[in-house]
């Protein structure tokens, strides 16, 4: 176990390992996305009140769920980078931030599109929407801070501090639904007790959430590999690898 973690910290080893992972993850992600989307958009029954417009849930909810989880990934990588000074953790954090920002933006935009037919308005200053907006700012802050530093090692550590501080905000995002009464309905999926959403709609949703997790992992890995190639463009191991191909 420990040797595995130590190996993960070595760029050449990680590059080869992630290459294998990507090979498997890419078809799995595409497959899950296709099946989930087809099931959710074509097979699942229309909602008795919202008709077909509810189907945007199959993009909206997975994007929001993974955007939140992505912040944890980023903050955890930041903590690892601060404590053990592992270069790969820096790269992970750097790679996760823009992906998380895009997912948050997707969740906000699909939410607005869904809000128009359902609530009759594009935007409501409701607790959960506002927290997602704040999450977007937190992501953008990390990206902007990284860009502003000249020394990229220092930049990664500054972002690690910022993302750990921002983690304080995540529980508030989850709690916000309880704290403020709002237009937004409380969470429908409950792992304990009965779901408020019918299983014919729930299964494709869970599938899409799994697909988005895979998509997140895939894009972060690809992002990391691109960064590794750039950082080690002069290194021997990479040039050998390129010559082999």
């Amino acid at each position: 176990m420990w040797t595995f973690i130590h190996k993960m910290g070595s760029p050449p080893w990680f590059f080869r390992f992630s290459g294998v992972v990507v090979q498997w993850l890419l078809p799995i992600t595409i497959g899950l996305l296709l099946v989930g989307a087809a099931w959710g958009l074509l097979v699942a029954p229309p909602d008795f009140r919202q008709g077909n417009s509810y189907r945007i849930i199959y993009i909206h909810v997975p994007a929001a769920v993974v955007a939140l989880a992505g912040y944890y990934v980023m903050a955890f990588a930041g903590a690892v980078s601060l404590i053990w000074r592992i270069k790969m953790a820096d790269v992970t954090m750097r790679a996760a931030a823009p992906v998380g920002a895009v997912l948050t933006a997707v969740a906000l935009i699909t939410g607005a599109i869904w809000g128009k037919p359902t609530w009759g308005t594009w935007w409501v200053w409701d607790a959960r929407i506002t927290s997602m907006l704040i999450l977007l700012f937190l992501y953008l802050g990390v990206v902007a801070l990284f860009e502003a530093y000249e020394n990229k090692t220092a930049a990664a550590r500054a972002c690690a501090v910022l993302s750990l501080v921002g983690t304080v905000n995540i529980p508030i995002i989850y709690k916000s639904v309880d704290w403020w009464y709002s237009l937004h309905q409380p969470a429908s999926i409950k792992f304990t007790g009965e779901s408020a959403i019918d299983s014919s709609m729930l299964y494709p949703l869970l599938l899409m959430i799994a697909a988005f997790y895979c998509l997140f992992a895939l894009t972060v890995l690809l992002n990391m590999r691109a960064e590794l190639v750039w950082n080690h463009r002069e290194a021997n191991w990479l040039q050998q690898l390129v010559r082999k191909v």
Binding site: I134, L140, A144, L145, A148, V168
Partner: peptide, 25 residues
């Protein structure tokens, strides 16, 4: 925290409001 993070950056003021305002919510 925001000042400490941006003190070495030229024109850090605007960046600082991006970093700090979400945390102050």
């Amino acid at each position: 925290i925001g000042s400490a993070l941006t003190v070495s950056i030229r024109r850090g003021g605007l960046l600082m409001s991006l970093l700090i305002i979400p945390l102050n919510v």
